[in-house]
Amino acid sequence: MREHYRTEGLDEADLAPGPVEQFARWFEQAAMSGLYEPNAMIVSTADASGRPSSRTVLLKQYDERGFVFYTNYGSRKGAELTANPRVSLLFPWHPVARQVIVEGVAERTGRDETAAYFRTRPHGSQLGAWASRQSSVVGSRDELDGLYRELADRYPPEERVPVPPGWGGFRVVPERVEFWQGRMNRLHDRLRYVRGAGGDGGGGAEWTVERLCP
């Protein structure tokens, strides 16, 4: 079960000055290719003792400050990021033989930013954020559906749903960003931006680029 990649390569001369601009280029190309949910990413965290865990989450925003996703702060990933804010994000764009790996430190978004995003969610997703005590054990699907129905009765579509107090965003401030391009004979291109001391993740001056062996 091997695929011989035959896509074009990735050369240092073609890179953007900084990783966010390069990510924007690849993200647009992934979306234009028809890739299903190109904003889906694997978020890997570790608890205070170093035990890792991973799950798929949707990227909701990115800019020079970092990559943002939302979750219940009491979830496993929320608790682990509170204890150990170091995190890895992986965008597995297999149909276009590309991957992007972001390594950095997660910080919580402000409540105003969280509330602004929460208002853009569909009504059902707003209710779901209240109904699910994410990562906790639930007795049955019926119990979960019952909690949702209670909330739907309390907050009909025309009713404003408040932002759950234990729910919000994490912004991953990048320190290393790798762009992986599949090539023939497993000689893939791997170019990694590394942020220098004092860099804020924004422009290109504080970033250096390394080529990694495949």
Rank of each mutant, 00 (worst) to 15 (best):
39 N>W: 09
41 M>E: 09
42 I>T: 15
43 V>F: 04
44 S>Q: 04
46 A>F: 10
49 S>E: 15
49 S>M: 14
51 R>L: 15
52 P>H: 03
53 S>M: 07
54 S>G: 14
58 L>K: 08
58 L>W: 11
58 L>M: 14
62 Y>M: 08
62 Y>N: 10
65 R>P: 02
65 R>F: 12
66 G>L: 06
67 F>Q: 05
67 F>C: 06
68 V>W: 04
68 V>T: 09
69 F>M: 02
71 T>S: 11
71 T>E: 04
72 N>W: 00
73 Y>T: 02
80 E>G: 04
80 E>V: 05
81 L>C: 03
81 L>Q: 04
84 N>Q: 12
84 N>L: 11
86 R>S: 11
87 V>E: 11
87 V>P: 13
88 S>F: 02
90 L>A: 07
90 L>Y: 10
92 P>M: 05
93 W>C: 02
94 H>Q: 12
95 P>A: 03
95 P>K: 00
96 V>S: 01
97 A>P: 08
97 A>N: 14
98 R>P: 14
99 Q>A: 10
100 V>S: 07
101 I>R: 15
103 E>K: 02
103 E>R: 04
106 A>E: 02
109 T>M: 10
109 T>R: 10
110 G>H: 12
115 A>C: 01
117 Y>L: 08
117 Y>D: 02
117 Y>T: 06
117 Y>C: 05
118 F>V: 06
118 F>C: 01
118 F>L: 01
118 F>G: 02
